[in-house]
Design a protein around this nucleic acid. Structure first.
Lengths: 237, 237
DNA sequence: ATGGAAAAAATAATCGTTTTTTATTTGACC
DNA sequence: GGTCAAATAAAAAACGATTATTTTTTCCAT
């Protein structure tokens, strides 16, 4: 594995897989929801959006419908779709669920370690820490164009050997939602957190094969992310 | 509090249920997938189905699309929809994930116990055990029209006080899939299992407030369900 | 003014058809 | 007889229009 999925935002002409219109639209709406361009609780006007994207009603509806899959959008009968709301309680619940599921996925993954995986992990960690070192001077290691991507990649790599598809699926969903909170809550008032030490702890214990310590490090990492982000913020608007 | 509305599939608006065509079709397809009327791996022909249900293409597509939510259906670009396959490995994974998630939901729920909940649980257990006693003579306590319903109800009741919506959602998804395996694997060769003692253990420990014992009982219950069903069967066809 | 029924506007749901893509068959050529 | 490619058939995806429902506005009676 080399590069973690370059977010193909291109025309359909180039590229190996010609995406279907539904998939293309689905991805773009997802991006808007996660980035906050479509705010929590906001209504999804099928007709407006369909004109904007230049697709038909049914294509638009099906694209939106598929976002119900990961709960990024909700639907209420006869009154359309709505972006899932953001609440502190929900973020708390996500954090708890993540701690449990990510921990278990990690346990399984570490138990199934292979040489290839170890090499992948070393590479992933290397890239991530390079970026973090570069960014640390700017005081915002957690907010950069490709940090997200490589941070995700590192964490994905950790659980890569977990062969339980359900755990991985739940983990992915939760991570996605978590990231939406992240995007929403991080701002100039946020304390710049140095995640390097946390990532190092996770990496070292993983390589050392100390499952218990690695699980503890991940759980602390997830919890700390919640605490830091919710410290001086609220979600009342 | 009287009847905890059996088989309420997460619907928030009971009563004035003027269901939309999409929802109606969605539920019927779901039922067919779970019951096995639509077999694992089978293709979902939009045109055939739409004629059968008397709806349009887009309605049918959207209904099927929404089953992607709980992974009962898969979609492959440009080649339509397909019923999710059934494999032994998948059942094993579901069982593992269920044990973890159900256990955690139970822990939270028991920690949040209320008097109302206790009354509900007593009632739910009572109804279930009555049915089981009636059925035990027939040698197949696990296979009866309303046993499923009240068994579900009992288990739902146990985790009712868990206020983590994510855990409950994951639990519901897994339970649904687990039930599909159940429907598929149970047959005349299955040993008639006496689940009464297991349910009694769960109930007693729950009422007694012995969280650790109750969690252990649930985990054993889930595991036993897997073991019994997979004993003399295979999923090769 | 004000509450509420009736009319109008907006938006969601559904429809049946057309276009695009994939699967299958046919038939010339080696 | 076997291979490959064009022709055909089948099915999926996308379309834009129609119908049903909900929300907003209007306007009359209290």
């Amino acid at each position: 594995m080399n590069k973690p999925h370059p977010l193909a935002t291109g025309d359909k002409t180039q590229g190996t897989s010609k995406k279907t219109a539904i998939e293309t639209v689905q991805e773009q709406i997802r991006e808007r929801v996660i980035s906050g361009a479509l705010g929590p609780g906001e209504r999804l006007h099928v007709d407006k959006l369909r004109l904007e994207f230049g697709v038909s009603t049914s294509t638009m509806r099906e694209a939106i419908s598929r976002l119900l899959i990961d709960d990024l959008v909700t639907s209420e009968q006869q009154r359309g779709f709505r972006v899932a709301p953001l609440t502190l309680k929900d973020f708390r619940d996500i954090t708890d669920a993540r701690k449990m599921i990510e921990a278990e996925a990690l346990r399984v993954s570490l138990a199934n370690r292979t040489e290839d995986w170890e090499a992948d992990l070393v590479a992933a960690y290397h890239r991530l820490s390079r970026i973090e070192e570069r960014l640390i001077g700017e005081g915002k290691p957690e907010f950069a164009p490709d940090w997200d991507e490589w941070n995700s990649n590192f964490h994905d790599c950790l659980v890569q050997n977990c062969d339980n598809a359900w755990l991985k699926r739940f983990r992915r969903t939760l991570h996605q939602h978590s990231y939406r909170y992240h995007r929403r809550l991080i701002d100039d008032r946020s304390l710049p957190r140095d995640v390097r030490v946390e990532h190092k702890a996770i990496f070292d214990t993983a390589i050392a094969g100390d499952i218990a310590a690695c699980v503890a490090a991940i759980e602390a990492h997830i919890e700390k992310s919640y605490t830091d982000l919710t410290q001086q913020h609220d979600l009342s608007d």
